[in-house]
Design a protein around this nucleic acid. Structure first.
Length: 275
DNA sequence: AAAGTGCACAACCGCGAAAGT
DNA sequence: AACTTTCGCGGTTGTGCACTT
């Protein structure tokens, strides 16, 4: 039966989180771990719904998050994984330690999609868009400016002869034989599937206390600063299931980022200065 | 310098799955 | 087995910032 919308209650706050709220949430999770999200806001003294708390934590406050742009390698990996998994962002994210599904989804929608289109590749099917036969349809769908991102892609995938893009993806990933992959490798020049070996999360090392920024310039620096400053050895994460991303093993380092009293927090990434 | 436009990202919404009773 | 509750996911929207005119 219906689930009641969690934020229906009058008086629950929506919109951007304040420093104070972040602080409360962090404090609470530090003390209690991630338990019942529904109870979190109440116990933490927040006027938010549990869902909102969970989202804020997983997408922004988690200590093991990398911030900043995806590196080229990560981007390739996303493309590769997307070809195999479709829009299963959480699955994709589980292969990229420190990245959230939301972040990857956003990056996909804003950067990668365009990139692939430019290369003549349908970002949904990872197959070439430029079939002569589709062109009329393509231009037709492109007329619908706002819907271009969705409808164009969807149409294209239909044109290619698959009944349903979603199912098609499933099928693709199941049935993708050598031929199919070969084609894709050929087409996705520079984003060749085999070029990016699938690695298990535990095989990936997250730089926890980098001496210098390893990823691309700009804002990613803040993540380095963030991690560096937060590195604290031997912190034991309170009894909680933090394994959303199956990172249990290598998370040891990330967990070490924490400190009971946040005394080392307050760098750029923690925009508000939580001290 | 101001207005307009586009982009990037954080946050919300609704749905389905899983777990609990 | 049926129903309820909670969680997690994917799609979408809103907002602030950067860039362009």
């Amino acid at each position: 039966m219906g689930r009641q919308p969690c934020c229906d209650k009058v008086g629950l706050k929506k919109g951007p989180w304040t420093a104070e709220e972040d602080k409360k949430l962090i404090k609470f999770i530090l003390a209690n771990g991630q338990c019942c999200w529904r109870a979190v806001p109440k116990l933490a003294g927040l006027l938010r719904c549990g869902k909102s708390c969970r989202l804020r934590w997983t997408n922004y406050l988690r200590p093991d998050l990398k911030r900043g742009l995806l590196s080229e390698y990560e981007e390739k990996m996303v493309i590769d994984l997307h070809a195999q998994l479709g829009n299963r962002w959480s699955k994709i994210a589980s292969h990229l330690p420190g990245r959230t599904d939301n972040e990857i989804k956003n990056h996909w929608n804003t950067h990668i999609k365009k990139k692939l289109r430019k290369m003549g590749i349908d970002p949904l099917t990872h197959k070439p868009i430029a079939n002569v036969n589709d062109q009329s349809h393509q231009s037709q769908s492109q007329k619908q400016e706002g819907e271009e991102e969705q409808s164009c892609v969807a149409n294209d995938s239909f044109e290619i002869g698959q009944n349903n893009p979603i199912q098609a993806k499933e099928e693709d990933s199941k049935n993708m034989g050598g031929d199919e992959l070969d084609k894709m490798e050929f087409l996705i020049d520079g984003f060749c599937i085999d070029e990016v070996p699938l690695i298990e999360p535990h095989e990936i090392l997250v730089p926890c206390a980098p001496s210098s920024s390893t990823s691309s310039s700009s804002s990613s620096n803040s993540s380095s600063i963030f991690l560096e400053d937060l590195y604290l050895p031997d912190f034991e994460w309170p009894d909680c299931d933090y394994s959303n991303n199956n990172n249990n093993n290598q998370n040891n380092d990330s967990m070490g980022l924490w400190d009971d009293d946040f005394s080392s927090w307050g760098q750029d990434s923690w925009a508000y200065g939580l001290l």
